[in-house]
């Protein structure tokens, strides 16, 4: 004999019964089921679609910010300014030619006649009176009528990278500045600094001969440097007689990656990035600073790393 509850439990606890086939369809088509499946399907697809979408978006944003690096955003007007920096060294044979950018080589050949016409007079004036800027400017003013107004996009010619000794030898033989002065530029040899360094003022600012022009910062950006630890040109830096206010220097490689930045005007780049020596080649600098009047100024250009 058995308690009736247990009897039924033993017999019926595992009871199975085959449901009618049509029940699956009823379950499947139940509105709550359909809603649930729709939501889950949406979630699944939004995962499949959302993740790649986010990846694409992030890539796009990264690309956008990379392409809008300051180097590429310099207004055209600033580019046209002829803030050329000239080196009082003659062009050098094969080495220099090898690093002249193609564009500058072409434009140089086109504008060469104008340079030769006007240049010698200017240079002779400036060289003779290195300390008297007033004289220089007035001379320029007079010449201004003769000088063609064409703006020069010529990139400054590259630095002479030969050793100091070689440079001196050449200086004895060849007239400086002859081959490289630009139509609208005036040369002002710096009285105290190394003879090979010359500061060049913008033609536009010189034309005014205002007293305030004298307040203009004279900065020199070399066209190249040789980080070989020989104590000479081992750093790429901006040279100036005095402190450069609000100085910001950025250096990019040719692919556009920022490899160096500094806000200390007297510091320079030693040719390494994260401990690695960067390869020889052309690099881009982007320089921001304030003039002595407090106006923000931007300069950009290229320079060569020579090893």
């Amino acid at each position: 004999m058995k308690e009736i509850g247990e009897y039924f439990k033993d017999k019926l606890e595992g009871l199975e019964s085959q449901p009618a086939d049509l029940l699956w369809d009823k379950v499947r088509k139940d509105p709550a089921m359909r809603r649930f499946n729709r939501i889950q399907r949406f979630k699944r697809w939004s995962l499949y679609v959302g993740v790649p979408a986010v990846v694409v978006l992030v890539t796009a944003i990264t690309w956008y910010y990379r392409s809008s690096d300051p180097v590429d955003q310099i207004p055209v007007t600033e580019k046209q300014e002829t803030h050329q920096v000239l080196i009082s060294e003659p062009l050098n044979s094969d080495l220099t030619e090898s690093v002249v950018p193609i564009s500058s080589a072409i434009s140089q050949s086109q504008e060469q006649p104008a340079v030769q016409k006007t240049e010698p007079q200017i240079s002779s004036q400036t060289v003779k009176t290195p300390h008297n800027q007033e004289v220089v400017y007035s001379e320029v003013d007079k010449k201004r009528g003769e000088i063609t107004n064409e703006k020069s996009d010529i990139l400054p010619l590259p630095h002479n990278y030969k050793s100091q000794k070689e440079k001196r030898e050449k200086q004895q033989n060849i007239e400086p500045q002859k081959e490289i002065a630009q139509p609208q530029s005036t040369l002002v040899t710096h009285p105290t600094s190394d003879p090979e360094v010359t500061f060049v003022e913008d033609a536009t600012s010189l034309a005014h001969t205002d007293p305030e022009v004298e307040d203009e910062l004279k900065i020199f950006i070399p066209r190249g440097f040789t980080p070989n630890y020989d104590g000479e040109n081992d750093f790429f830096r901006v040279y100036s007689e005095q402190e450069i206010p609000h100085f910001e220097l950025y250096i990019y490689d040719r692919s556009g990656s920022l490899i160096y930045s500094s806000k200390e005007w007297s510091e320079g780049w030693d040719g390494t990035c994260q401990g690695r020596e960067m390869p020889m080649g052309v690099y881009v600098y982007y320089l921001k600073y304030n003039t002595l009047q407090g106006d923000p100024k931007v300069k950009k250009g290229t320079f060569n790393l020579i090893r």
Partner: peptide, 17 residues
């Protein structure tokens, strides 16, 4: 109170259901 039945009864699951 318990209600007892003979567990040997010849009932099938279907019968009990």
């Amino acid at each position: 109170p318990d209600v007892m039945v003979d567990e040997e009864l010849p009932f099938t699951e279907g019968d009990l259901l």
